[in-house]
Design a protein around this nucleic acid. Structure first.
Length: 112
DNA sequence: GGTGTGACCAGCT
DNA sequence: AAGCTGGCCACAC
């Protein structure tokens, strides 16, 4: 009802990503679905691409694809950066995949 | 204002 | 089984 710039899709994505607890991960699809656009998971990834420009404090490394694979690792400063950050939070990453992804998955819809 | 693109997802061949 | 296509929607040129 009040299409302000602050309410743009990107901004909502950032807000959700910020809510992801430390040591947890979520997926593009989950965020997209939470925002009401289930099929627009690509938009989420795109939002992340500009996240470092708009809000550099966004923990984009906590966002992975539905396989738990660090698809966006290549977009960080260095490829190891994303894995480094995750492991630094206690998330084990093997072959660019999050171990125990099922248990570490954080659903924004179920979160408080 | 149309076209292209994109850190995805699911389905079809 | 593995690869390709379409769909989805917002943003940049």
């Amino acid at each position: 009802m009040n299409p302000h710039k602050a309410d743009s899709f990107f901004q909502k994505v950032y807000e959700v990503v910020r809510r992801v607890p430390r040591g947890r991960v979520t997926t593009y699809g989950a965020i997209a679905a939470y925002l009401g656009s289930k099929g627009s998971a690509r938009m989420v990834g795109w939002a992340m691409n500009h996240s470092h420009k708009t809000d550099p404090d966004i923990p984009a490394h906590r966002v992975v694809n539905r396989n738990g694979v660090l698809t966006g690792k290549h977009h960080f400063g260095t490829h190891r950066m994303m894995q480094q950050l995750l492991e630094n939070e206690g998330v084990v990453v093997i072959s660019d995949k999050v171990r125990h992804f099922d248990a570490l998955f954080w659903d924004p819809g179920k979160a408080r």
